[in-house]
Nucleic acid binder design. Structure first.
Lengths: 327, 327
DNA sequence: CTGAAAGCGCTTACAG
DNA sequence: CTGAAAGCGCTTACAG
């Protein structure tokens, strides 16, 4: 059996209270007693049971992270930073990949609540979450508008869309198409499209929008790419709202004999490390992933500490153009 | 305050015991009482506290996952499958990104033990883990040999290395170089290199090995790629033991005026979904990531259930050649 | 400086 | 079919 605090107490010849004090470094304790207790802990290989501590403290130091899938490089990198920063602050991550399924998201939420997480970071469209937030649960959203009262952290989607569109225009593109994720998942990323539309209208160019319904399904991405190439032989510019869409489009365009960037110029979005390794030639709008993670955690911790006053409900971080060889 | 079982009991006019029985669907209960209790739960919006349950049950349904980083597409996808399969079986994932740091790994291990995880899935070289395994903790390793007694799940590294090397030879390459991760991290993936060496020797070709020390550092990857191009102008084949190494090498080779595959043929390793999207042209050895996750969890659950007899200590799953345009 | 007691929110023998 | 009591492994007032 695992040793418990009682075993340590007995071996050290003190009470549980004293052992607990040594463990938590709280209250007055003589050096000698402390040494004795520590020796007993070592001898028994004692590991405190955080479940028991959590039950008493009503604090688990557990943070739930709900996002579509760590398979996607943007979320894979975001997860890494979230976990690493949390870890450095003494928090642990309970990971949930919802794949944007509403029923899964609700199930995950219930699971997180049962596990008494101190807070939740959401990167999905979880509507059910509202209910919990009203019950005082600390929540932040990454690039998703969930409600008026839930802080959103994201990068400047409108600026990103503007920069991408203007770049294509400045390179002389006449027929620029945007490939976006499903509009059903309404999120601030729609601003990328809004910017595209505004700029195009300003320049009296046609607005042409294609949507990938199953965002994480490569087949669907390929389908859309082919559809565009088929329906718009004159296309000479593509703004893809994530790098995977861009890559798939480029690949299909090349297959159909197009030259990138001579025939068609393409800009992606996200600019993950993975994409920089696998496709360094892609021109893209880079999001500050690490910074997004950092700010999200800062705000979440404020909420956890009960500082609801001092919280900004909207944080918009800067994006950066990475110009490669596809424009 | 959150409602607890006592509140539900009071509202339903029964004892805590009865509420608990409804919650766990255990023991005999009249339909009427059950309905009453369920109504009370609904009314109070009662959510059971799994921390308290875990304390009593000595079972948390928590599984610790320690791996280098979800930023890497292989581990990002592996994490997704691990989490998703665990979730479908009622287990939750506590995520740890160690970045291969030994001190972090030890810290994470202690954290997982304090949190009373039911088992651990390791994808790192955690030596300290041995100690815990001896103490009866359920553990499986993904492609890492940690000890005689810890089951290893992985894909057929030797076959992968053989297939890659033979492919390059069959395409007429004379000077084939392998780019591998640091040998310091000794793992079964060294078999990829062993296969390369065996085949090359069999064909009386020189064995040329380059190592990326900081596996996840793109700068280091670039450095090695340049070094190879500089030191071996006659290189006409490269076997990179992961796709990011392959991609970086290809990019540097192109920068220095080489044509892929005419001048140099390149085979990668892993074949993640992300890589198939971002770099579909890459020839690579694909690992069955989902299957690895599934088998790892199967075995871990057996250990958790105490079935140590029936467990295979070594599982070697098949790899698959994805032939693209870089060979 | 140290300890006995109560309690965190559950569950499970045991008794009825 | 239902409930009172004990206990999971901790922590913290409170008393000394």
């Amino acid at each position: 059996m695992k040793p418990k605090i009682q075993d340590v107490a007995k071996l050290a010849g003190v009470s549980k209270t004293t052992v607990s004090r040594v463990l938590n470094n709280r209250g007055y304790i003589s050096e000698k007693t402390k040494k004795n207790v520590e020796k007993a802990m070592d001898e028994l290989n004692y590991i405190p049971n955080d479940i028991a501590r959590s039950l008493f403290n009503k604090r688990t130091n557990l943070i739930g992270v709900i996002l579509p899938t760590t398979s996607n490089p943007f979320f894979g990198e975001l997860t890494f930073y979230l976990e690493n920063i949390c870890n450095s602050l003494g928090y642990k991550i309970l990971l949930c990949n919802s794949l944007n399924s509403i029923s899964k998201e609700e199930e995950y939420l219930r699971m997180l609540m049962r596990n008494q997480v101190d807070g939740i970071i959401v990167g999905t469209h979880n509507q059910g979450i509202l209910e919990y937030h009203k019950q005082n649960l600390a929540i932040v959203a990454i690039d998703r508008n969930l409600s008026e009262s839930i802080p959103v952290i994201g990068s400047d989607n409108y600026a990103g869309g503007r920069i991408a569109t203007e770049l294509l225009l400045s390179k002389g593109c006449k027929c620029i198409i945007i490939i976006n994720g499903s509009a059903l998942l309404k999120s601030p990323t729609i601003l990328r499209q809004k910017a595209y539309e505004d700029i195009m209208k300003k320049h009296n160019r046609p607005v042409i929008v294609y949507e990938v319904i199953n965002v994480f399904d490569r087949k669907n991405q390929i389908e859309i790419a082919r559809k565009i190439l088929d329906e718009w032989p004159e296309v000479d510019g593509v703004f893809a709202t994530n790098d995977l869409f861009a890559a798939t489009f480029i690949s299909e365009a090349k297959n159909s004999g197009k030259n990138i960037p001579d025939d068609i110029k393409v800009v992606g979005y996200d600019g993950t490390e993975t994409c920089q390794s696998l496709m360094p030639e892609l021109t893209t709008i880079q999001q500050p992933i690490k910074l997004i993670a950092k700010v999200a955690i800062d705000i979440l911790l404020k909420e956890i500490e009960g500082q609801f006053s001092n919280i900004s409900l909207k944080t918009c971080l800067p994006v950066k153009l990475l110009e490669g060889k596809t424009t």
